[in-house]
Nucleic acid binder design. Structure first.
Lengths: 199, 199, 199, 199
DNA sequence: TATGAATGAGCGTTCATTCAT
DNA sequence: TATGAATGAACGCTCATTCAT
């Protein structure tokens, strides 16, 4: 996967940054090449075409997201704590690596229609971890959730909404960002621990 | 506002659809024209330029979303019920009018920089209703929320995440869409009613 | 020639002004129409097409130039004085009616290739007056010029160069415009009166 | 400056010719490309945009005019002779290289507004030589001119008028071109040598 | 491994003009 | 006398990509 080539990596870095800064529309092979101080042709030595470049970017971001969450959550063995850690680290990743985070969701659908479906499977590693953690919690009697699959996806979606709002700077100017994030996480988590807490 | 011109409306419809299907990047005046079976020049008889066309689309969608939510939620007078209705109708709008819903969020960075700021105010009408409803609920002792502003925004964000996942067809194939939506709404709502329920 | 129609005249005025201010390239039927507060189509009621409009403009300017010079020079009966008057009034016309003056020379060659040759004849009326005046002066022994035709044309050309420099604002900033004009006229005239003066 | 590229040179040649034949308005990147039998895109490999192409053309013409006059006039050391030589070579350049000559004056208002001011300085080299020559002549007592600056500019303007008439083929058909030029030069020169001649 | 030269397709936009009313 | 609707052609320019070296 990592072919250990400096120019290749530089192209990916530049592309990722340009994508984040100026959006998909302004991303062009020429501009990437210019910023990398190489000819546009050179990019084709490492990436078959623009689509492949983008797909590599997505793949890489998805992998990093999974690794990040795993590195934070796997060490935690207690069920509820791991559950919280996954949620927390998902948001953290989005805020710490906005360029990578955005790629996962932003590029669509102009080029994603051509993104090989099987790659999506891999993207689910972190999600599967969340599912498993919920299931474990339920098995251990730490949580009451009827459909872990659905719950996990719902959490995923809600977190994505929260992170997106922040990254897109759509937050109401009267709202403190840090508080918004904390409250939102709290809210998402609370929605699941409720009955447990009550009992 | 509605100048009652069939071609103008057709252009808006086609644009909205193309935007939804292929994304902002592949939206072109020429393609719109071709699909409307008119010359590209004709579009300029109804819209000053591409930006104006897009802004018209956004404005229209934003207005429709507000109207939709208001028409569903305003008739409901009980606080908590109205609160639920707003949430429910927001999601409903997204699912019933996906093309309009997506425009509100999708067009952004490229052309939105030029979208007149004052128009954004109008976009907040539904959001302000949510804030007010939460405040009313708190005043009436129906809900315990410290920061209604933050809460409303957080709900907004989470709902957007949920709707997005569905519209982008990113839902796990093992998950039933209807259930996902119901559970998600339930979850978002529940996160707020918790303490009330408990008491 | 003058069909006495106010809109027709307004179109000519606007065109003349736009031509002068922004050059031929920016002259468009649309813009003329917009400034006249009529539809673009309306222009075609008075002018067959853009070329005809331009040709009308040229014709009119040429006519005005002739009339202007004649009105100034014909009353003067003394040969040399009339000679000077023609020269002087040519320059005066250029400075007083720059918009009309420029049209005569500026529009070329993009649309002039299609300007009917016979119209050029009429343009020569003032020039023919100059030729005749020189010939009269020579006959009367007031001037010594071998080829009045050539002389007249040469004067014409030189004066045009002088007027052009001023109208195009190409004058060296260190040079006073009024002095430049006076000296230039003096110079052109002097070149012909020389031998007379000497004798 | 001369990067020795055949296509680049061909583009310049074609542009220069088209500019001369059809005027600035009808000069288009596409037409140039078509005539050079290359794609329009190719032009952009050698010129950043249309303005740059035009500016290159102007620069080149201005430089050539200066070089031409200098090469003819500098070898001549006697003041009056050099004075005549400058005038003569200016006209000669216009007649020998009409395409280059016209560019200097024709391109103007549309694109010249964006022509870098400092480049104009260089354009004055030949004019400054004329000024200096007049000054030298006056110092040496060979000529009586009160304002060399004004005189030089006036000569410049008159010569331009003469050359323009010829190049624009506006010459009266009854007039022999060669004689027109000779007489005009004679006339311009004579206007200045007058008092000298008389004394 | 890298490039320079070249291209066809497409973009948003403006234009002069036509036609039915 | 006047217009609104419509168009085909053209414009400057950018793009992803190819090919020979």
């Amino acid at each position: 996967m990592s072919e250990e080539n400096p120019l290749r990596d530089q192209i990916l870095d530049i592309s990722r940054h340009m994508l984040f800064e100026d959006g998909y529309t302004s991303l062009s092979m020429r501009k990437i090449a210019k910023q990398a101080n190489v000819s546009a042709t050179s990019i084709y030595l490492y990436f078959e075409n623009k689509d492949h470049l983008l797909h590599t970017l997505i793949e890489e971001s998805v992998e990093d997201l999974s690794l990040f969450i795993e590195s934070k959550a796997l060490p935690v063995t207690e069920n509820i704590e791991r559950f919280k850690k996954i949620i927390e680290s998902y948001v953290d990743f989005g805020l710490q690596y906005p360029e990578k985070y955005e790629i996962i969701y932003k590029v669509r659908p102009e080029s994603m229609a051509r993104y090989p479906k099987e790659k999506f499977r891999k993207a689910r590693r972190a999600y599967e971890l969340l599912v498993k953690t919920i299931e474990d919690s339920v098995s251990a009697g730490d949580m009451e959730v009827e459909k872990p699959l659905v719950a996990a996806y719902s959490i995923w979606a809600q977190l994505h909404g929260v992170v997106s709002v922040v990254l897109n700077k759509r937050l109401d100017s009267r709202i403190d960002q840090k508080q918004f994030i904390e409250d939102s996480i709290e809210h998402v988590v609370q929605g699941f621990l409720v009955r447990t807490t009550v009992s």
